[in-house]
């Protein structure tokens, strides 16, 4: 019986690369979404809600729920389950609407 998803499909991925999550180094595989790379590192939350400040991460997994919104390289509200991870990406926990800098 397989012990990992990669074993199950006999994956031989291209060389892994590094991204960061709130400054911490996370290893990602080519072809993984940002959310997949974070899950692989045991990270399930990368956003806090606007009102309650509660942690959230991927829920629907297919780009429909927008719960997985993350700040990717400074740009807020990217759907982590769709955005492919790229070498050097800096993912940061998005607080609320992610646009605090626009407030007047």
């Amino acid at each position: 019986m397989a012990r990992t998803p990669a074993d199950l499909v006999r994956a031989e991925p291209d060389p892994p690369f590094e991204i960061t999550f709130d400054g911490r180094t996370v290893t990602a595989l080519p072809g993984q979404s940002v959310a997949a790379a974070l899950w692989a590192a045991g990270i399930l939350a990368w956003r806090t809600t606007r009102h309650g400040g509660r942690p959230r991460g991927a829920f629907c997994g297919i780009g429909q729920c927008y719960d997985c919104l993350a700040t990717v390289n400074g740009e807020p509200n990217r759907r982590a389950c769709l955005v492919p991870a790229r070498p050097g990406d800096a993912i940061t926990t998005q607080e609320g609407h992610g646009h605090a800098g626009l407030a007047v």
């Binding site: 998803p5 072809g31 993984q32 899950w39 399930l44 509660r54 991460g57 629907c60």
Partner: peptide, 22 residues
């Protein structure tokens, strides 16, 4: 709404496309 609660289809999708588990 707690992290770790995921859609059943979502878990399946993340596994099929990203080879990861929640």
């Amino acid at each position: 709404t707690l992290p770790g609660v995921v859609g059943a289809g979502g878990a399946q999708a993340m596994l099929k496309s990203g080879l990861v588990l929640p």
